[in-house]
Write a protein that binds this DNA or RNA. Structure first.
Lengths: 163, 163
DNA sequence: CTAAAATTAAAACGATCGTTTTATTATTTA
DNA sequence: TAAATAATAAAACGATCGTTTTAATTTTAG
């Protein structure tokens, strides 16, 4: 909170009046982050539910992670530090993951209708696989710069989809 | 520290005498965890550097994660909560990941000599891919029970290896 | 312009945390 | 057994943290 007071120039009393407490403020920030930063990526999948949308989604996520000012994903960092955030914040992460998984599974199902993904595959399993890899990139990416790894991982995702 | 005093029945002064401070104690615990809990899995890869060893490694990791008393991996949870542990602890995680990656890449190279993995693949990239997925399972597994997912992810790993 | 409401700065609060100290008790060593 | 060493319980420390209060200042409304 003292960091926020310093960084925002706001008064602590003002923030407590607006958000109730530290947890409320964080939950509010996390929701805003989801709506403004993350849901546009989901929208790509909803707008183009097929292989084209999936590729656009992956490319957008990758170029985001590769951009110079990328500081990490607030949503997944919240999950990583699960035990020091509120239950409501974790529920928000879960809610987001479900949303993403549904959008991805829908796009994969669309790709199956197009014929770009084999019909025999389970779209939900593939979606989980992709999300699992994205989580892995967040966590394993902390070990050292994951930038050289991203391309290989994306290639693996596409390979898993079409193989 | 107060939790440890309660849980161990030891005196705080004794712990400070033995380990210096909280960080030192944690680093010691993490090293012990690596040596006793994690390195046996690496040893599987070193003992049998081929597809057989890789499968044994994956099966061991999976059955560990699926066992009822599994509480999560201290090594990867340390990475997840990066900002609240010491730099030395993070260095330990990095050191471990490098060790694991080398063992995995060596086993994959062995599998390539056997012919069970296509010779054209980059063993280091495949190793990174597997480790990335394991990290993902740790993090994404927090969203809800990942047990139903594990089998699918392992299948994806094997598919990526032999495809 | 004046009164009410909101915002601010700054201090203070109680709680917790990592750590140290003190005095006592148990263990080892010679 | 006596002396030295180690371990213990318990209190106390300074620092930090989330939060509230107080009093002054600014903004808004009538």
């Amino acid at each position: 909170m003292s960091d926020l007071v310093e960084a925002t120039g706001l008064n602590s009393a003002s923030m407590y009046k607006e958000f109730g407490n530290k947890e409320g403020l964080f939950e509010n920030a996390l929701l805003d982050y989801q709506k403004t930063r993350l849901e546009p990526y989901i929208q790509i999948l909803l707008d183009r539910p097929g292989m084209q949308g999936i590729e656009a989604f992956l490319n957008a996520a990758v170029s985001r992670a590769e951009s110079g000012d990328y500081q990490g994903c607030l949503m997944l960092n919240t999950l990583a530090e699960e035990h020091s955030v509120s239950k409501a914040a974790i529920r928000r992460v879960e809610n987001f993951c479900v949303k993403l998984k549904e959008a991805l599974a829908g796009a994969i199902a669309g790709a199956q209708k197009e014929g770009t993904v084999p019909a025999g595959k389970d779209a939900a399993v593939l979606a989980d696989f992709i999300i699992c890899l994205m989580h892995g990139m967040v966590l394993y990416g902390r070990v050292d710069s994951h930038k050289p790894r991203i391309a290989a991982v994306v290639a693996a995702v596409k390979g898993a989809l079409i193989a």
